[in-house]
Amino acid sequence: MRWGVVVFPGSNCDQDAVGALSCLGEEVVTLWHEDEDLAGMDCVVLPGGFSYGDYLRAGAMAARSPVMGAVRRHAAAGGLVLGICNGFQILCEAGLLPGAFLPNENLRFVCRTVQVRVETNRPAFTRDLEPGTVLSIPIAHAEGNYRVDPQTLERLERAQQVVLRYCDATGEPTGEANPNGSVANIAGVANPEGNVLGMMPHPERAVEQVLGSTDGRGIFRSAAVCWAARGA
């Protein structure tokens, strides 16, 4: 499986994503935000960071860059797309995922390991995980307060597009476990087809025990498992 990590001006987790994927034995290259095609990638990663300095709104500028036309075509053709943190914000700004982000409810930049519960293994990126599994993965953001209107939320819940929810150590999505005020404790959302996932936690920071957790591996492994099954 071939992975491409898009570098926008202001991305700062691109090399972490490349490192994590290399560590997992995946074939990975970087793509540039001005590229107009994805050079045959199977999965595109939009990494975390502060693309364009969060000017106007987080992800607003990057969502309108040339590479996003190619990402849109890739997604429409069933290709895999993973947006992490700023990448999630970019996917929402691009209209590839529903919703938008406000500053964290407590107005602080929150940088710590949180627990998220896997809600469904229907999407590609959780295919190899049991629903109900609690993952420990770091977050690092100031604008992770995910918002959708009540009708859209109901539609997302019904279609099992809510993939990850902030929870406590026992898997309960409590108010105390919600680090940013996101509606319904939402930490990750997929498109209806399940080939596009946006998530605020950073799985690429949780692939080696020396970094404190290997729970991020499941996200990347799921995509690889899903892709292999598709090819078979």
Binding site: L56, R57, A60, R64, C92, E93, P98, G99, A100, L102, R147, V148, D149
Partner: peptide, 8 residues
């Protein structure tokens, strides 16, 4: 198309 986010 750019200056406002229609969701919010």
């Amino acid at each position: 198309r750019l200056l406002a986010n229609p969701v919010l």
